[in-house]
Every structure is written in structure tokens, then in C-alpha cells.
Simulated assay, not measured.
Amino acid sequence: MTQKTQNTISADGFDVAVRYAFRVHKEDGEPVRRILDEFDIVDYSCKPFADDVYLYLPLLRYPEKEERLAVRDCLMPLILSLPHPKEKMEYHSWYVKDLSFQVHKKAPTVSDLLGFSVAYEIIGDIAVLDDKIAANESGDEIDVSKVADAILTAHPAVKTVLLSKGPISGEFRTRDLEFIAGIDKTETVHKEYGCKYKVDLGRAYFTPRLSTERHRILAQIEEGDVVIDMFAGVGPYSILIAKSAKPAQVIANDKNDAAVELLNENIALNKVQNITALNEDALFLAEKYASTGDHVIMNLPHNAYDFLDTAVTLCKSGGIIHYYAMTSEDDLFDGSVTLIREAAKKQGREIEVLETRNVRSYAPRQYNICLDVRIL
């Protein structure tokens, strides 16, 4: 059974709380914290502290065994890429019982400041308000400038607030954005799992909402694999894999000139060597890379089905396609499995469905899904 944290007590004029802690080398604290954050176990009401060697991150609870194993599996690719992996392999010593942490003074949230909730995402130092922001629960029109002020107050690191004027659209999956407050810009640097990505939200697609999904794919990459990222964008899948796994090669392709320009900047920014950046129509990748891919990533959910014939051709025998799609709740997976099976059948090949995942809700009754399918 998961052990709960103890109640807050008062000592030396300030509030402290006794918590389980996650112990990590100080220099690795931020990438590890980002991974732990995906499991919702970091207690942000408490202030981390460090000694000469370690940083101690306060936890909301001591994770169950299955959760501890999942944390370990997510951290291992990062640990093996760090300068002192042997010392970090002792994952059972990561958790420390009954440490005292100073409690943060509670800062107001956006909801506290406004009196109602709004949807937004933070990318680097830019906050993007959801395009559906129109009225609060009482039906009153929302003043987006007041929402922007609340975001800037609640998130001191945010420098810009933009309003999405509609859904992602067009061949290059971009958004029409309106400047609301702060610094008028669309460029920023977003940090995720120890990688840095320069993005331009007005010219190339990027979302932090797939960070967990990107890490899930990373965990499947084995040393010496060839990875083909057919729709790489600015490189969040490709660079993470090249930096944290040991692939023989990553082919990162995108048709959007602006995205590939940023991709090349991000390759240099993250100091990765084993990536080939291409600016091609994905339909033509098979001319050079047929039967070479151990993993083929198809993160173009609105119309990846148009490229399935090429993806099958790219896969070596036993290669895996990671196929993303937008589907309705009436047919989450079956239709997509049929499309992949038919594409494989054209080439005299069979498939094995390894995993089906509902990645996130996209719209009412619509979901962003992923299928991991082995091509035999």
C-alpha cells in the first residue's frame, strides 16, 4: 500500500512538512524532475534542498511497486546517457524516507486570480490560450487581456501570451496566433527531458502535450536501431532518441522548410551527431531508405494514412510503425488497424499489433491515438 505523507508541522518560525524524497545528483535534478512530473508524484508545495552531492525532491507519496518500476524504466535511458551511470543504477536508493521540507508560501493560480478556469499550454516562455476560450461558466464573455495578465502573474517565467485563433490546420499543421500580452513574439526555447527545442509557433508545429508519448517511444529504441521520423517537425522525437538512446542513425524528415531550419538548429543546440535532417515529401523517402527502418514514426495524425504504403516499404522485416491518427470513440483502433493491414498486404507482408493507445482527447468524442505495429 502506498504510504501517505505526514501532516505539515511548524518549526523555527516557518512551516515544514515531512515527506518521502527522491534523491538525485544535483546536476541531473531538472531532467529527472521533468520525468517524475509525468507521474504526478512531485510535491510542489514543498521546497527541494541539496547537500554537497544530492538534490532531494519532495514527493506527494511513496509510489506503488508498479509505479516505481515505471519510473525506473523511464529514467534508465536518461541515466545511461549521464556521465556516471554505474552510481545511478542503484535505483532502490533513490527514495529516502521522512525528510523535512520547507513549505512554499502558496502562490495564486490562474483560476484563483480569475475565479474560473481557462485552457492554455505553456511552451518555453510562451503561453498559448485555447481557441475555444469565449465565455465562462455563467455565459459572460471573457476578457482575454485579463486572462493574459493572470497567466503572467501566476507564471513569472512566462514572457508572452498568445491566443490561438482556430485549430491546427494546413499542410504544415500551423496555428493562426494573436498576440495578447507581454513580449510580441512566436519564437522560444522549450526544454523537455534534458533536450532543448527552438520553436517558432507561427511557422512550425510543436506541442508539449506529447512529451510522455515521445518518452514512451524512446523506451522502445535499442542500440543500433535505425529510426525514420517521417514528419519530424522541429525534432522532438528524433533529437530525444538520438541523444538518449544509441541508435545507429535517425532519419528526421519534414516537408516544411521552416521546421527543417529549426530542426537543424536544434541538432546543433543539443550536440547530437547521428541525425540526418531531410526536407523531402515523405512519399519519396522509400527511394533511398526502403527496408532500413527498425522504427518508423508517423506523427501526422490527421492524414498519416496517406503515407502508409511508404511506411511499410521503409520497414525492414520486423520493423515497427508508430502510427498516429485522429479517430472517433465509435472506432478508436479497428479502422486504423485495417488500413495498416491493407497497406502491408499490398506488399505481401503481414502485421502484428503490439500496442494500441489512446494518447489524448482532441475534441468531443475525438481522440489522438497511436498504434505500434510490427511489419513482418
Score class of each variant (00 low, 15 high):
Met1Thr: 11
Thr2Lys: 14
Lys4Pro: 12
Thr8Pro: 09
Ile9His: 11
Ala11Asp: 09
Ala21Val: 04
Val24Lys: 10
Glu27Asp: 06
Arg33His: 07
Arg33Gln: 12
Asp37Lys: 10
Asp37Ile: 00
Pro48Leu: 05
Val53Gln: 08
Val53Cys: 09
Lys65Gln: 09
Lys65Pro: 04
Glu66Arg: 13
Arg72Trp: 03
Cys74Asn: 14
Leu75Pro: 00
Met76Val: 07
Pro77His: 03
Met89Val: 08
Glu90Ile: 01
Tyr91Glu: 09
Asp98Asn: 15
Asp98Glu: 13
Leu99Thr: 01
Gln102Arg: 14
His104Pro: 05
Phe116Ser: 08
Gly124Trp: 00
Ala127Lys: 09
Leu129Asp: 00
Asp131Asn: 12
Glu137Ala: 15
Ile142Ala: 10
Asp143Thr: 14
Ser145Asp: 13
Lys146Ile: 08
Ile151Ser: 11
Pro156Leu: 06
Ala157Asp: 12
Ala157Glu: 15
Val158Ser: 00
Val158Asp: 00
Val161Lys: 06
Leu162Glu: 08
Leu162Trp: 08
Ser164Lys: 14
Ser164Thr: 03
Gly166Cys: 07
Ile168Ala: 06
Ile168Gly: 03
Asp184Gln: 12
Thr186Arg: 07
Val189Ser: 02
Val189Pro: 00
His190Leu: 01
Tyr193Trp: 05
Lys198His: 14
Gly202Glu: 08
Ala204Glu: 12
Phe206Thr: 00
Arg209Gln: 11
Ser211Gly: 08
Glu213Gly: 11
Ile217Asp: 02
Ile217Cys: 10
Leu218Ser: 13
Ile221His: 10
Glu223Arg: 11
Met230Trp: 06
Gly233Pro: 00
Ile239Thr: 00
Leu240Met: 13
Ser244Leu: 15
Lys246Met: 13
Ala248Gly: 14
Asn253Glu: 00
Asp257Glu: 08
Ala258Thr: 02
Lys271Trp: 04
Lys271Gln: 09
Asn274Ala: 13
Asn279Trp: 05
Ala282Cys: 07
Ala282Asp: 03
Phe284Val: 12
Ala290Val: 08
Thr292Tyr: 02
His295Ser: 15
Asn299His: 13
Pro301Asn: 07
Thr313Phe: 05
Lys316Met: 09
His322Gln: 13
Ala325Met: 09
Met326Asn: 07
Ser328Trp: 07
Phe333Asn: 07
Asp334Ala: 14
Asp334Asn: 14
Gly335Phe: 13
Ile340Arg: 14
Lys346Glu: 11
Gln347Met: 09
Ile351Arg: 06
Arg357Lys: 13
Gln366Ser: 07
Tyr367Asp: 06
Cys370Asn: 15
Leu371Lys: 06
